[in-house]
Amino acid sequence: MNRFADHAKNPLLISSIAILALLVIGELVSPGFARGDQIVRLLTVSAILGIAAAGQNLVILGGREGIDLSIGAVISLGAVIAGNVMNGSNAAIPLAFAAACCAGFLIGVVNGLGVTYLRIPPLVMTLGMMGVIQGGLVVLSRGVPSGNAAPALMAFVSRSAFLGIPGILFVWAAIIALMALVLKRTRFGWSIYAIGSNENAAVLTGLPARRIRVLLYGLAGLFGGFTGVCVIGYTGNSFISVGDQYVLPSVIAVVIGGTSLSGGAGSYTGTALGAIALILLQSVLTTLNLEFWGRQVIFGVTLLLLMLLYGRQARLRV
């Protein structure tokens, strides 16, 4: 138990140090980088990635090589559904959230059923699902961007709700608190760690491992749909590949946040810090007056260095 606590603590510390260091570097390179309103803007972008990574975090914690590659397509689907439901009308925002989250949840449940009852490897199942959703999006939208965000939704994502902080950040803070509460203080949370670290033992103690895992994939889809609505609030309108850019960054945020890809260990607080560090890194690289290729190379190498600190697998022993 002590060793687990040590493992979970380190990533939080390292991500926090990385975040501070990036802020200092950003401020040195371009004065004003770490100004209050800039930080709020960066946190808003991080919130969108962070909420997507919440779903990814759950399926990865649940073990059995859990991963959701369809999350990007679900985000796009959520954005397209929300855009068409709202079509610029404030009154339809709750309905847009409900529709996008339901669609995401259903897709996630299908992923979960495939992974548990048909025993299809998660990578393959969600990769296949990604193709299906992308195809479905082409049918839904006929290839042209459609639907608009309602003004109140755009304000929720980008305008101040209270003390200069937009509403989405309060929602993200609530999600962080809720995830910490559920993962650390509830039966459901403990059972996720249990099936993630040793499924056989968990099943023998009477946990319904399959049903829990289906629910985890469902929740991943739900978070994906929710993220989609936030994305259309951020961009204003939706196109069918808007979510693609979140697929692997959501996995990276989870990994540099200290959650093991083999499941059973980690926390969402770490993932949230990982998402912030990732967005800050991209932002610092943008302010460094570099050519695109240079930014790409430094970004990739920094990810590798971050993983060097704690994303490594256990040594094999005789």
Partner: peptide
């Protein structure tokens, strides 16, 4: 270095595409 293959090859793919653009 005992890195995870999925995230590592994603990171190196960013580096390789950056080099290609260079």
């Amino acid at each position: 270095l005992r890195f995870q293959p999925i995230v590592t090859t994603f990171a190196t793919s960013i580096v390789f595409s950056g080099l290609a653009l260079w």
